[in-house]
Design a protein around this nucleic acid. Structure first.
Lengths: 131, 131
DNA sequence: GTTGGACTTTACGTTTACGTCAACTCCGGT
DNA sequence: ACCGGAGTTGACGTAAACGTAAAGTCCAAC
């Protein structure tokens, strides 16, 4: 079923993305499907890359960041230095996400505070410069 | 010092925004400074609104949402129904933020998991379709 | 042989919240 | 009269990640 080469539609169904997305990723040099005449055919390598791309997206990596990471390890020269760099990038992103989460939590607490006062919060919308 | 009417620069310094921002908010009908000839003069009302706008931004409200909320309570008809609607909007937003935070936490956990495996995570970048 | 899908390319549109000019206009000071 | 600074309008630019037509190609089925 999961044949060696997949059409764009099979890919879309498998990964829940649109054809536009796959072409877009190709234009951004994230995927390199082979061609059968006009048609794109996605290899196992493309599927692997796409899987990582989507995972990266969940982590908040930009497409450009993913492209760089993928290309880094695609050249086969996955030496110590390169590995460490990827590792560093990932840890940095993790730190960013944690900061973002903390900010979000602060905002939540603040908003929750307003709401707990009940109608007082609403009043603040009516008497803006009350203080 | 905090005179009744403030120039655009005074506003910028007071709220740490750029002139562009204030004009933008005006174009979006969030602020309504009066004019002294060419120049904009911001009233106490504008300052109150701006304060709420910036607070709203921290809560993740879009400018359009803030405009609606402000206008709602600006018409003076802050009746029960209207109040409840604002309250509802705020609670909904809070729920959104909590969902967002939860998703972020999941992603963080997932990424942290990868990192804890150390170099194995990096390896996953080399053997995409390993599974 | 033609119709219908599936696929293709090209290219402009969308969203949000401003940034960044360019070209004025106005006002106080010298 | 002239200059500099502050303020103004208008318009185009930016970023990300695609969406959405428009128009053409290709192959199998009828």
């Amino acid at each position: 079923m999961t044949s060696e080469l997949m059409t764009i539609r099979q890919m879309c169904d498998a990964f829940e993305v649109t054809p536009r997305t796959l072409r877009f990723y190709e234009a951004k040099e994230l995927l390199f499907p082979v061609r059968n005449g006009q048609k794109r055919l996605y290899t196992r390598r493309d599927r692997g890359r796409l899987k990582l791309i989507l995972r990266g997206k969940r982590f908040g990596f930009s497409l450009e960041e993913m492209r760089q990471l993928l290309n880094l390890y695609d050249r086969g020269d996955a030496q110590e230095e390169q590995l460490k760099r990827t590792y560093a990038v990932a840890r940095e992103r993790l730190a960013q996400m944690e900061r973002q989460r903390d900010e979000l939590n602060e905002a939540i607490e603040e908003l929750r505070g307003q709401l707990e006062w009940g109608a007082d919060m609403i009043a603040s919308f009516r008497r803006p410069a009350a203080e």
